[in-house]
Computed example of a mutant assay.
Amino acid sequence: MSASHYPGSEAFKGIPTACISDALDTFGINGGLEGLKALGPGMALAGPAYTLQYEPVPEGETAQAGEFIDEVPEGHVVVIANGGRQYCTVWGDLLTHAAKIRGLRGTVIDGCCRDATAILQTGYPLFSLGSYMKSGKNRVRLAARQVPVTISSTVVCPGDIVAADDSGVIVIPKDVAEQAYRRVKEIEAMEERILLDLQNGMPMKEARIKHRYNQYALRVNV
């Protein structure tokens, strides 16, 4: 099969995260951000990561809300590493409106958002561990931006491609994005051939063998 042209992060828009995961498995790359879910059904995003690292505020100190939104380039996905904290939030409705105005593609939070109803009304794609009403002011603070961050054992670097849908959130390392995209196209074509054979009455086991379905699986050392 000839190699597909890779047009950049936009190429992953609309591709199911399950297919991307299968492609990354063939390179031995995890990429999944466990536990993060869409704030509402049907949300999806794909774009380069703009990373933010948060940390707790020491007892007795104060800290204002993180100021970063004005610096995020258009077309990027905000990735906030808040250490899985769910006792306070780092995103709300005002940031959502600012992000939409700036043309951002969505936000991914290892933690919680608030103003869930207002965010849902905007249709802005947001993925997090959940929602909670407590502000992050004086509880957590922005420690660094555009640095590698770790979310559920997966390292996310600035510029890595983030994709998300109802099945979850996955990160494609930028240095393998082109190869991953080509593998995704191979997998999509393979699954289309299997579906066609199923519709023509072929048993699943036979169709999978015929089209080498298990070739596209996690690479393991044996």
Rank of each mutant, 00 (worst) to 15 (best):
A163I: 01
A46Q: 01
V79N: 09
D25S: 11
E188P: 08
L94Y: 10
V169E: 09
P58E: 09
L195I: 15
T154R: 01
A46K: 00
N138I: 13
A163H: 02
Y213A: 09
H76V: 03
M190Y: 04
D110K: 01
V78C: 08
D25N: 12
Q146C: 07
T122Y: 06
V57S: 09
N30I: 05
V77A: 07
A49I: 00
Y6K: 03
D115K: 10
H97C: 15
I15P: 07
D197F: 09
L120P: 10
E186M: 08
L52Q: 03
S4F: 12
R105S: 08
A143I: 01
G28V: 02
I172S: 03
S128E: 06
L218E: 13
E188N: 12
S9Y: 04
S21P: 06
S152D: 03
M190N: 00
L104V: 08
I101S: 15
Q121V: 14
S21F: 05
G47I: 07
Q146A: 06
P7N: 11
I187F: 01
N82L: 15
G31E: 03
K185R: 14
M204R: 10
L33Y: 01
G159F: 03
P73H: 06
F68L: 05
R141V: 05
K100I: 12
T17H: 03
V78G: 09
L33M: 02
T17I: 09
T150H: 01
I15R: 04
A49E: 01
Y54P: 04
L195W: 14
A164Y: 00
C157R: 13
A18M: 05
L104G: 02
P41E: 14
Y181T: 01
L195Y: 12
A180T: 07
I20H: 03
G92R: 01
C19V: 15
I15N: 03
A63T: 10
P203Y: 07
C19R: 10
C157F: 14
M202A: 09
V149A: 00
L24Q: 02
T107G: 08
A164G: 07
K137D: 13
Q215E: 15
A81E: 06
I101C: 15
G66Q: 10
E55G: 10
T96L: 05
Y216M: 11
D70W: 02
I119V: 08
Y124C: 10
D93F: 11
G31N: 10
A177K: 04
P48N: 15
A99M: 07
F127G: 00
V171K: 05
Y50F: 08
V156C: 03
L142C: 07
F127Y: 00
V162F: 05
D175W: 01
G8R: 10
V184Q: 10
Q121Y: 13
A49H: 01
G136N: 06
F27Q: 13
A98P: 14
V78W: 07
Y181R: 03
D25A: 06
D110C: 02
K185H: 11
R212Y: 04
N82H: 13
P158T: 03
Y181N: 10
